[in-house]
């Protein structure tokens, strides 16, 4: 059984954080390579993507942070019945402090009341850990590090939106998402990955839009309507000409992932989260026998 101490969970979580911060998932690297092939030789876009690809290799080889903005650690943990969520959450918070001390993370948490960096990577709400019980005997951890530059270009719309000719339907949702991509330009470190949610309230909608970013770039949405939306927005976004870093070019987004939640009759939110090219996802399954399986 998973009778492990808080210290042992902390040590395991530090490993997950190390992987997230330094090793970019293979599907993201592949999408960047494909983007590079689409760009003209000698263009600023090609040069930017060459630098990005070289950076990914350097970070992976040296186990150093891919980006100095090591972001907000967003964590989803599935655990068996009866496990303490306080223990898991506390262990993850401690893991963030230890990873920060080891320069796997930057001291990235500011106390806005004191207007001072806490120095250890943790503060109220950082990291954000969501624990959910499941029927498996093991523990699954999925996390991402989401940088501030891309977080700042996230957007939330309410439908209808007359300026975009966006009504309360799936066509309206698409229009909002495309507008958010246009407005972000290169500021979220394009080429980006779009996580979106329609429905929900202002809080739940954004959270679901971020959870969508845990998906592999090469997966397919099992809901046909959403799958079609994802593909259409991907194609159109890459016709905008924003390109890597906003230098111009044909690689503006690497993927579009869309989910939905129930809404109130009065509300129709479209929440769009932008993830930079440094889409630092990591996942692990800890089996009852102590073995670890890394998830992509």
């Amino acid at each position: 059984m998973l009778e492990t101490s808080k210290e042992q969970w902390t040590a395991r979580f530090v490993e997950v954080i190390a992987r997230a911060s330094t090793q970019l998932p293979p599907d993201v690297v592949e999408a960047l390579r494909q983007g590079r092939q689409r760009e003209d030789e000698g263009s600023l876009a090609a040069r930017a993507l060459d630098t990005v690809l070289r950076n990914i290799e350097l970070a992976a080889g040296n186990w150093q942070p891919i980006c100095q903005d090591t972001g907000t650690p967003l964590v989803w943990i599935h655990h068996p019945v009866g496990m303490s969520t306080r223990l898991l959450t506390g262990a993850f918070e401690e893991a963030v402090r230890q990873a920060t001390a080891r320069q796997l993370l930057r001291p990235n948490a500011v106390d806005p009341l004191l207007d001072k960096n806490t120095g250890n990577g943790a503060a109220p709400g950082i990291p954000t850990v969501h624990c959910e019980e499941w029927d498996e005997a093991g523990v699954e951890v999925r996390m991402m590090l989401k940088g501030g530059g891309c977080e700042n270009v996230g957007a939330q719309y309410t439908l209808p939106n007359p300026a975009l000719k966006a009504d309360r339907n799936l066509e309206g949702v698409k229009r909002c998402i495309l507008d958010a991509i246009y407005k972000a330009q290169g500021k979220g470190c394009s080429p980006g990955i779009i996580g979106a949610c329609f429905g929900g309230d202002r809080g739940s909608g954004f959270l679901e839009s971020k959870r969508q970013l845990l998906r592999r770039l090469d997966d397919r949405n099992p809901i046909p309507e959403l799958d079609a939306m994802e593909r259409e927005i991907f194609d159109k976004a890459n016709q905008l000409g924003i390109g890597p870093m906003g230098f111009g070019g044909s690689t503006t987004v690497l993927g579009v992932k869309i989910g939905y939640l129930g809404r109130l009759p009065a509300s129709y939110f479209v929440s769009v989260s932008y993830m930079c090219w440094a889409n630092r996802r990591a996942g692990a399954f800890f089996a009852p026998d102590g073995s670890v399986t890394w998830l992509e």
Binding site: T51, N55, L58, C67, Q68, G147, C189, C276, A278
Partner: peptide
């Protein structure tokens, strides 16, 4: 303009 996210190359 430096390349955003290229923390290792630039370091």
């Amino acid at each position: 303009h430096a390349i955003g996210g290229a923390a290792q190359v630039l370091a």
